[in-house]
Simulated scan of single mutants.
Amino acid sequence: MKWSELCIHTTNEAIEPISNILHENGASGLVIEDAMDLVREHTSTFGEVYELDPEQYPDEGVYIKAYLPINSFLGETVEEIKQAINNLMLYDIDLGRNQITLSEVHEEEWATAWKKYYKPVKISKKITIKPTWEAYQPVDTDEMIIELDPGMAFGTGTHPTTVLSIQALEQFLKENDTVIDVGSGSGVLSITAALLGANHVYAYDLDDVAVNSTVLNAKVNNVEMKITAKQKNLLDHVTVEADLIVSNILAEIIVRFVEKAWSQLKPGGHFITSGITQAKKQFVKQHLEQQGFEIIQSNELEDWVSLVARKPSYE
């Protein structure tokens, strides 16, 4: 089968919403080529250094590459993708150059190309994420290994927003907590919570493919009995009372369910939010505080922010 590679030159801020658009339009395989990768250190926990080819990277911003089957609907699909991306400007999302190019590739090329970008990475003090096809031996006795197979539909779990979320979970999740993961994606945060000792995790995502991915990855990591994955729009019709809610999605989406998060959290519970750009930090912080949350921690990694909010206890 012949495939078309769709390459979008955009910004780091636009990665997640554009990735969602591509997935919704049937794209397979997702590769992110970030210009900043060329100046970051790339030493793994093994001491290996991965050399990157500057010719494959943009001079600024990021390339998002996805793959569409070449058929009679390709033209219409590409136009729908372009329109949906342009509509992101209505949400004040910086699209950068927003240049889209199309080229033809063969199946064997895209089927494996994205995997070369995915290596074991130590995310926090205890958590290391590795792809299912990579061998890895724990370095520390208390190290927890999460195996992920994103199935070419989701991220690898190493994006700064995910790293911030995992680090916050490690700090604030208590043993036997009930946890809600809003926008579960591949299920990496749900799996992290389960491994860190949560009593049960409720993983919600609007995308049924994400729900299936969470179920699959939960089984791979032997925590399927601790995770309930369901298709839901944010926290609509959710009645579970949680000790902790975590959500790694866009700032504009987070503020839409702050009130519902408040009502589903037990007094003293924590609301971990990520996926927030520096420019949207005050926007989210204001909504959280207006609802009554206390901001107890703000963490930053590269251009991303994670806010940890607490619902006051009533004694």
Score class of each variant (00 low, 15 high):
7 C>S: 15
13 E>S: 03
25 N>D: 09
26 G>R: 10
28 S>F: 14
35 A>C: 03
36 M>R: 04
37 D>G: 00
39 V>R: 15
44 S>Y: 10
51 E>K: 14
55 E>N: 13
57 Y>T: 00
58 P>A: 03
64 I>D: 04
70 I>C: 15
73 F>W: 14
74 L>K: 13
79 E>G: 08
83 Q>S: 12
84 A>L: 07
93 I>K: 00
93 I>C: 01
95 L>G: 03
95 L>S: 03
99 Q>H: 07
100 I>Q: 04
101 T>Q: 08
102 L>N: 10
103 S>R: 11
114 W>Y: 05
124 S>L: 11
129 I>T: 12
136 Y>I: 08
138 P>E: 13
138 P>A: 15
140 D>P: 15
141 T>G: 06
141 T>N: 14
155 G>C: 09
168 A>T: 08
177 D>K: 08
185 G>Y: 02
190 S>G: 09
191 I>V: 10
203 A>N: 06
204 Y>N: 02
208 D>N: 02
211 V>F: 02
219 K>T: 09
220 V>G: 02
220 V>N: 03
224 E>N: 12
230 K>H: 05
230 K>D: 00
239 T>E: 09
240 V>R: 00
244 L>K: 01
245 I>D: 01
250 L>Q: 00
256 R>K: 04
260 K>Y: 00
276 I>M: 04
278 Q>I: 04
279 A>P: 01
285 K>P: 02
292 G>V: 12
293 F>L: 01
296 I>T: 12
296 I>C: 11
307 L>I: 07
309 A>Y: 07
314 Y>G: 13
